[in-house]
């Protein structure tokens, strides 16, 4: 449920209505950013990667968390390779 897609805020288009332009792979759309401004000045949102759902930015993507998820998967792969290598050398 709830299709959401990452995009980057490129400009504030209407500060009063809390609207900003978001870029998704070159496709641009005006979205409401009321949910992600927090205590910041609205201009500080420019450059944020956000998750967009039905024209609303609903969450700022946490870069460190994204990297952490990928790191776990890379380690998992490496661990498997080591085990496989150990098995091969054990057999040899």
């Amino acid at each position: 449920m709830c299709l959401g897609i990452p995009g980057q805020i490129t400009a504030i288009s209407d500060a009063g209505r809390k609207l900003a332009m978001v870029d998704v792979s070159g496709v641009k759309r005006e979205v409401n950013i009321a949910c992600i401004i927090g205590d910041r000045a609205i201009e500080d949102c420019i450059g944020d990667w956000v998750l967009v759902h039905v024209g609303f930015a609903m969450s700022v993507i946490d870069e460190a968390q994204a990297a952490e998820t990928l790191r776990i998967l890379i380690e998992l792969g490496e661990a498997q390779q080591e085990i496989a290598a150990m098995r091969t050398s054990g057999r040899a």
């Binding site: 299709l3 897609i5 998704v24 792979s25 070159g26 496709v27």
Partner: peptide, 12 residues
């Protein structure tokens, strides 16, 4: 094209 992919992702 990347843009077509993005377009499709946005609209499902």
């Amino acid at each position: 094209r990347e843009e077509v992919k993005g377009f499709c992702e946005i609209l499902g």
